[in-house]
């Protein structure tokens, strides 16, 4: 594995195995794992018990940290972000962390500021405002404080 040493997410170097992989936002993973759990529910009483710990921990994690909970909001986030010529990895980091300022976005995804991408501060700002709109209008009750953030930033 020669790629191992050069691996660096900040420079979008993920190694050859992950070049073709599709990155998933926490909200998307949550939908996928939920569907999986439902399928298993039809086969047995207590499906979570039969799943490996990795599954259970991942499910808990994505539930806790996904900003968007209904499928429509998750789809909208990907749609809005994909208008901006982002790499998959960048898109998902932004979708997961929902930075509120341009500086924060660049600190989270340093590659946004790379050579001649035509992404100036204004474009990033616009992208974040669009994101915040979805965040505050997705009306699920999960993690009220995060909803609070979204409203405050409007």
């Amino acid at each position: 594995m020669s790629g191992e040493e050069e691996e660096n997410a900040a420079e979008l170097k993920l190694g050859e195995d992950f070049v073709k992989a599709k990155c998933l936002m926490n909200g998307e993973v949550s939908l996928i794992l939920d569907r999986r759990l439902e399928q298993l529910q039809q086969l047995s009483e207590d499906p979570l018990n039969q799943m490996p710990q990795v599954f259970e921990k991942s499910l808990q994690y994505v539930k806790r940290f996904s900003r968007y909970n209904n499928p429509d909001a998750v789809r909208q986030v990907r749609e809005i972000l994909s208008r901006h010529q982002l790499a998959e990895f960048e898109l998902v980091v932004l979708g997961n962390l929902c930075p509120e300022t341009v500086e924060e976005a660049i600190a989270m995804v340093p590659s946004l500021k790379d050579k001649g991408r035509g992404l100036d501060d204004e474009a990033i700002e616009k992208m974040l405002t669009d994101l915040a709109l979805i965040k505050s209008s997705s009306s699920s009750g999960h993690l009220l404080k995060k909803l609070g953030f979204g409203l405050a930033s409007l």
Partner: peptide, 28 residues
Amino acid sequence: VVFRPFKGEILEAVVTMVNKMGFFAEAG
């Protein structure tokens, strides 16, 4: 679906244990 952490990646995690050496956190 796999979970793979990368060097340089920024993510959110939950603290599981704190001691004077530092703390452990879990992300999935």
